[in-house]
Every structure is written in structure tokens, then in C-alpha cells.
Write a protein that binds this DNA or RNA. Structure first.
Lengths: 342, 342
DNA sequence: CTTGTAAACCAAAACGTTTTGGTTTACAAT
DNA sequence: ATTGTAAACCAAAACGTTTTGGTTTACAAG
């Protein structure tokens, strides 16, 4: 049996109230009693029963994170790194992290509702925001605390952290144009993800600034995995006039694209350039190493979690919206185009 | 305000007891009343308060998973895929998943103790078991439910799922010898991990069967990351008599090794062979694709979680120990050794 | 000797459930 | 008219805390 506050009370010969107040360092308990209670608690290995505590004071000291993931085989380093970022910070503040998985779609809102109504969490962390994001609309409508990784158009005063990926993609565009590329193919995820719209817009504007128009037919839709990147890249490569550079909107798809190019007998960084986005640890170890835009996912997890905890504690937030500056990481997957196409 | 069981009771004009029993489908409530209560609950958006429920019935319907991870930048796909495996299965059974992070070492046991004593979880999932695993010793000593991914020497009747990686590595050994390799370098993690001991033993025995002894100096210790793999591989490669094959004990290190070999100007799969272990999704998309041993991490997550839930529910377990058969995945990172060394 | 005040303590209520150990009602069997 | 039985219901206790609204004691001030 675990020891309860009542056991301590009995042992030290004080009331339950006094023990509780002693443990919480109230000042209507004498220093001697406090000491006595603390020692007894220590000795008896007392740890407060979480359920009872939480039932009484209406908070849960738990933050919720619902992974928007489908099916098995999700191994996007994006998620694990972000999760570690949240988890560490939560632990620092004595908060628990309740993780569920639920694919985007119908059931999603019900999952959120359920966790809210059964009083399981104090707030949510939302990731991979979408245009018209039902999760955010729901949480907003009931006034439930949350912080998002990613912006949402039209929801400009919700709390979020995001990287200014518009600018990030402009840097990619600048760099590719500087290298001499004019015919660029692009592999993007579904445009329902807001990060995709920003990155595409950045790319488009960046290219247009140099007088280059990205044609619709040169933009293909992938599913953010290596597999998706491979398949779409292969399509681009096998066209009669293939692009000299492939811009993937995340690193995983870029890795697939590199693989596709190599299977097609091309030398990446010479015959064709490939860029990614995220700068996952792996991107240093691809062959050739990947040119990409850095995004500090772990730290973003930290920040998002920290903000959420402040919100649920009712503490003031210095900045409700944070937009990080991206930086371009130039590696060897990009080079001047090989202008042998007739 | 959220609606409580009391609100329903008032509305339908029955007692709290009856409402509770109606919702739980007890048979001392008339069908009409049940229907009435259910409809009212539905209408009023009633969801049971978890804390109250759990305080009363002593279980938590939550399983604990403490990621044994150090520092930031952990993005081992191993963890995210395993986590997804656990998470999905837990959700299927209406269980929550409580995730924490804590680096291996001193503090670890305290983290477990804390979660146990504060009544936060019904059982734990343990991953990356170690020789003399303090976590397992602790949980065993207090009789707290857990299931491990990985065996522990001397704890033969604890519940676990593992892949028979001894055999997996023998297959690697067989294959490399068959290709003609005799001088093999190896990058292994610390031998405190039980999976490392099994894999090494498998490799050693596999080679010895063919009359080849793995020399101590050819076994280097890496930290399971791409970086570790890169550095150790570089060491092996720069030796006067470099091995013709590098056996890494996981895919991530193998990817680092491939990168190192390429930076040293070698053609992987020709000048040098590299093998991994795990068959992470990425291993298809390395260049060249990686020869490795398949390990169904997602499914193992599923199984481990299912077993744990059965245990905490007191249901019988068909198999308390599960040892999966590995399978060798031959890809292009391995080939016959280039016998130009004088 | 009263009154006031501060220090130390505590009984009981409250949180929202589930469960225990009943009671009430209706009706059939004796 | 009593007894038995089954169906439907429910009051109160219990889970382990925190908090409310006190009380008791000691001692100083008037």
C-alpha cells in the first residue's frame, strides 16, 4: 500500500489538515512541525496521489499533444524531435505530457473534445497547422488554452511559434538563381498545411523577383515522406525537359528525390540540384549532403511548451506570436546547372 | 461548467447512483431509464471526469513510457516509430499514454518511483533494456507491471518482446562471408545495452562458424547516431589495413558510415561494404540503399502495449516472452570485396 | 480580570465518481 | 394475510487530497 497523508498525520500525531499545510509550506504551521512532517513524509516514501490532488484543485498539470499521424510507419524525425522538445520542457516545469495519436479528419475533433471534457489536460499543443484548422477553431470556440507550431491565416492573435519559412524559401530561390538555375521543379505537400502555403509563396516570390515564373506543371504534390519525394522526383526527372533543380518542401522528400535522381543515373549537385527544408540531423549524412533551411525543431518544441505552461498558469506572455528567422544551410546537393541540354 | 453526473440525475429525476449504473449498463436499471439517462447525457455533452473516476477505482487507465534519451537532438526514427506503435494500440483500448523523458542514469529510478507512487500509471513500457537494468530491478522488486522491448540476462520470466538479433547478425555474417569478406570492422554501441550484446554475439559466432575471428581492435564503440557512425567508420577506414566491410549495429550508424566512406573517396558496395540493423524506412533511400536486418518496430510497439494492457487488466497472456524471427534485407551497400589490397 | 492578538492547530466540506448495502414496490405463491 | 422474490431504485460511504472557516492556547495590553 502506498502511504497517504493520513498515515503521516497519524504518525506525527497531527491532523490531516496540518500535514497538508506543512507539506505546502503554509505559514500557519510551526517550523518544528513542518520539519517533523517533512521527515516523516520522506521516511515513509510519501508521494501525493495525483488523482486526488487534481480532483480537488481543478487543474491537471498535464499538457496534451495529439500526433496528427496516419497509419503505421510514421518516422518523421520532425515529430520525435519536436516531442522531445515539448517533453523536456514539460518535465522541467513538473508537467506531464499526455500523447495520443489521431489521423487528421473527422474523428480528430472528437478526440480533442473528449480530452477536454474528461478533464484530462490543461492545454494542447497543436502541430502542423492547417488552413481552416478545425482543431484550432474548436479550441478557440470553447476558450481552451493551446499554442501552435505554425500560423493559421485569419487567426492572427492566437499564440504560436513559427519559422518565417516564406523568407527561408526566398533564400533557397535566391541561391538557386544565383547558381544559374532557371528551370525549377518543386515537390510540395498538400496546400491545406499552412506551412506549405508559406513555403510555396516564398519560393514563388523569390523566383519572380528574379523574373522567373514557377509553372503549375512543375509543382507536384508529395506526402512528406521519402517515398513520396522519390516518386514525384522521378516523375520530374523523366520529363523530356527535366528541371535542373528540384526544390522539396521538407528534408525527407528531398532525400527521396536524391535517391530518385541517383537511380536515374544523375549526379546530384552536378547534373541536378536538390534542396530540402528542416535541416534534420540526417541531412548532413546524405550523399551528397543536403542543402536546406534550418529549423530548430527541438527549441521550437521548448518554446511552444513554455508558452503553453505560462498561459495555463495565467502568467503574462512576453510575446504571443513568435516568428523565427530561418537560415540557409548550403551543402553539396546543389551546384551550377550542367548546361548540356541542347 | 462541465456537466456532472449530478446534473443528469437532476434532469432525469433519478438518483446519482442510478445514473452512474445506467451509464455503466448495470442490469438493475430498467431499459427505459437507461435510455433516458443516455439521451440526457448525450444532450448535455456529459463526459466523466477522469480524475474523479480514477480516484475511486484505483486504476489510471494510463500507461507510462519514459524515453531514455539524453539532451536535445534525439531524432532516432526508432523512438518515433515505436512510440506510434504503442500510442495507436493504447488508443484502441481506451488507454492514455503518458510520456516523459529522462536520460539513463541516477535520476532515472526516481522518475519511475515518482510516477508509480503518485499513482499516475498502471504500468510501464521499457525500451532499450540494459544489462543489470535498474529500471527493471526496481519495477520487479515492487511488483509493478511492465513489459520490455528487449531481453535482460537472468530475468528470463519477465514479459518482453524482442527480435532474435543474434540470428539476425549471424545472417549478416553469413552473407558477408559468402560475398568474400574476411576482414570486417564493426561499430557497436555500449555493451550495457542487451541488444548490443546479442548482436555482437551473433556476429562473432556467425563469423567464427566460418573460421573468422573478429578482433577486438576491429570493434569500435559508437553512440547509435549518424555522427557516431561517421566518426568511428572514419577511424576504421583510415587504418593502414582497412576492413573490406563495416558492420554497424544500427541503421543510423550505418548511414554515418556510408557517409564517411564516401567522404574518404570510396564507393560503397564496391570498395567497401556497409551493413546496418533495423531497416528504418530511410534505409531504402540511402545511396546506395542499405543492406540491413528488418525489425518491425511499429508492430513490436503494438505487441508490447497489448501485452501490458492485458497484464494490468489481469487477463491471461498467451505468451509472456516473444522472440521474433529476423530477416535479412539485401541491398546495394554490400558487394564482393575489391581485392586490390596487396 | 478582561480583552485583543498572534501562533498553531484542526474538523468538516468539497471535488465527481463508483460501490456497498441496502429499501421500496409489485406481484405471485402459500 | 403472510411470505418470497424479482425488479428498480437509492442514501451514504469511500477514494486522498485541499480549503474553508473556524477553535484553542499563550501571552501582552488595558
Amino acid at each position: 500500500m502506498t502511504t497517504s497523508i493520513r498515515d503521516i498525520a497519524e504518525k506525527v500525531g497531527k491532523s490531516i489538515t496540518t500535514v497538508s499545510r506543512a507539506l505546502h509550506d503554509y505559514d500557519d504551521v510551526s517550523p518544528e512541525t513542518k520539519e517533523l512532517v517533512r521527515k516523516a513524509a520522506q521516511e515513509m516514501g510519501y508521494v501525493a496521489n495525483r488523482q486526488a490532488q487534481l480532483l480537488r484543485q481543478k487543474s491537471t498539470d498535464t499538457i496534451g499533444f495529439i500526433l496528427p499521424t496516419f497509419g503505421p510507419r510514421f518516422s518523421d524525425p520532425f515529430f520525435s524531435e519536436f516531442l522531445a522538445g515539448i517533453g523536456n520542457k514539460a518535465a522541467d516545469h513538473g508537467y506531464d505530457l499526455l500523447v495520443s495519436t489521431c489521423p487528421p479528419g473527422e474523428k480528430e475533433i472528437r478526440t480533442y473534445q473528449y480530452e477536454v471534457q474528461s478533464n484530462r489536460v490543461d492545454g494542447f499543443i497543436i502541430v502542423r497547422t492547417r488552413v481552416d484548422d478545425a482543431r484550432i477553431q474548436y479550441l478557440n470556440s470553447i476558450g481552451f488554452p493551446f499554442v501552435a507550431f505554425g500560423r493559421v491565416p485569419g487567426m492572427d492573435d492566437m499564440p504560436y511559434v513559427d519559422e518565417n519559412s516564406d523568407v527561408g524559401m526566398q533564400m533557397i530561390a535566391d541561391y538557386l538563381v544565383e547558381l544559374g538555375h532557371t528551370h525549377i521543379g518543386c515537390i510540395a505537400p498538400s496546400m491545406e498545411y499552412t506551412f506549405a502555403t508559406h513555403r510555396m509563396q516564398g519560393l514563388r516570390e523569390g523566383l519572380r523577383f528574379h523574373g522567373i515564373d514557377l509553372r503549375e506543371q512543375d509543382v507536384l504534390t508529395g506526402d512528406l515522406t521519402e517515398k513520396g519525394g522519390y516518386e514525384r522526383a522521378m516523375e520530374l526527372i523523366q520529363r523530356p525537359y527535366r528541371p535542373t533543380a528540384i526544390v522539396a518542401l521538407n528534408d525527407l522528400m528531398a532525400i527521396g528525390a536524391i535517391s530518385a535522381a541517383q537511380d536515374a543515373g544523375l549526379v546530384v549537385g552536378k547534373d541536378i540540384s536538390v534542396t530540402g527544408f528542416d535541416n534534420i540531423p540526417l541531412s548532413t549524412y546524405t550523399h551528397p549532403p543536403l542543402t536546406t533551411v534550418h529549423q530548430p525543431i527541438f527549441q521550437i518544441g521548448n518554446m511552444v511548451c513554455e508558452m503553453l505552461i505560462k498561459i495555463v498558469k495565467g502568467m503574462p506572455l512576453e510575446e504571443k506570436q513568435v516568428l523565427l528567422k530561418p537560415s540557409l544551410i548550403k551543402r553539396q546537393s546543389t551546384g551550377a546547372p550542367f548546361l548540356v541540354e541542347k
